[in-house]
């Protein structure tokens, strides 16, 4: 003779017992991962000692404000330029062929070395001497390379000018 009933007695072990259960579960997990947790604690100790945790804490608790400030700072024309320039520079570097760039850079390095030796000698070069040096095949090569560079650059400048 079972009448309809609606009352359910929940075993109100609730708060404490559930906490107890959770604790047991966590403790056994800790025991299982003893090594990892000890290492982690050591790292945390170091972070605390060096003040890093403090900084992080401040940062996290003000994350929204800081985020807003940061984004505001980033959202400025000059920063846009900086970021754009970084992208362009990266693009520029990416387009250069490594082998050619290496040759150029090595030549440049040699040039710097020669120049500094020359400067150290503190010898005056006469105009004639300068003209004479134009006969030097190394100088001719460097100058003609420079002229080719200027030619290419001028070409590109002209095209860009047309298209604008």
């Amino acid at each position: 003779m079972a009448k309809a009933i609606r009352q359910i007695e929940m075993q109100q072990s609730t708060a404490e017992e559930m906490q107890q259960k959770d604790m047991e579960r966590i403790l056994s997990q800790i025991a299982d991962n003893k090594q990892a947790i000890t290492s982690m604690l050591e790292i945390v100790d170091q972070l605390e000692a060096t003040g890093v945790l403090d900084i992080l804490k401040g940062f996290l608790s003000a994350r929204e404000k800081i985020g807003t400030i940061a984004v505001e700072q980033i959202n400025q024309p000059n920063i846009h330029h900086t970021i754009k320039n970084i992208f362009y520079t990266m693009g520029f570097v990416g387009h250069l062929e490594p082998e050619k760039l290496r040759t150029m850079l090595e030549s440049f390095q040699k040039g710097v070395e020669t120049a500094s030796t020359h400067a150290e000698e503190k010898e005056k070069t006469s105009t004639w001497g300068l003209v004479k040096s134009l006969r030097d095949p190394h100088v001719v090569l460097a100058l003609s390379t420079m002229v080719s560079f200027l030619k290419g650059m001028g070409n590109e400048l002209e095209e860009k000018g047309d298209s604008q």
Partner: peptide, 18 residues
């Protein structure tokens, strides 16, 4: 992300996108 961070971020992305 909250709107006040998200929207400027979209702006930045659009502004600088290569």
């Amino acid at each position: 992300m909250p709107k006040n961070i998200l929207e400027p971020m979209i702006d930045v992305t659009k502004e600088v996108e290569p």
